[in-house]
Design a protein around this nucleic acid. Structure first.
Length: 107
DNA sequence: GACATGACCAGAT
DNA sequence: CATCTGGCCATGT
């Protein structure tokens, strides 16, 4: 049923380049997800294969239980975090795609 | 169908 | 910065 959506979200997350991050809202927007909540839901189920650590909350922080792991992985990829927060202004991947509205070749 | 839960978001106080 | 409020919507009981 929501297979379509699942694949979409996964595809988007997979396309986040190393050293960049995106917010749940952004991913939801790009993947045409009905709501950001779904992104989290999908990652929770099928996110094991994906670079889920490149997905943060809208304020630049990560979900509580993942915080430690998240920040560590990001740091290894070259994304510094200050006080548990990432500077979205500088590392937000969506910035490059935002104007386009939709990633090419996805459909 | 009602109700609770969750890797969310934005605005107001 | 901390809370609250309302909205979001799939999943499970």
């Amino acid at each position: 049923m929501d297979e379509q959506l699942h694949e979409m979200v996964r595809e988007v997350v997979r396309s986040i380049p190393s050293g960049r991050v995106a917010t749940y809202g952004d991913v939801a927007d790009i993947a045409r997800a009905p709501s950001p909540r779904m992104v989290g839901a999908v990652l929770n189920q099928d996110g094991h294969d994906l670079p889920w650590h490149r997905v943060l909350k809208a304020n630049g922080t990560c979900a509580p239980h993942l915080a430690d792991e998240q920040l560590r992985l990001l740091r290894e990829e070259g994304v510094p975090s200050l006080d548990g927060k990432v500077d979205l202004r500088a590392y937000r991947w969506e910035d490059a795609v935002k104007e386009k509205e939709e990633p090419p070749g996805l459909w």
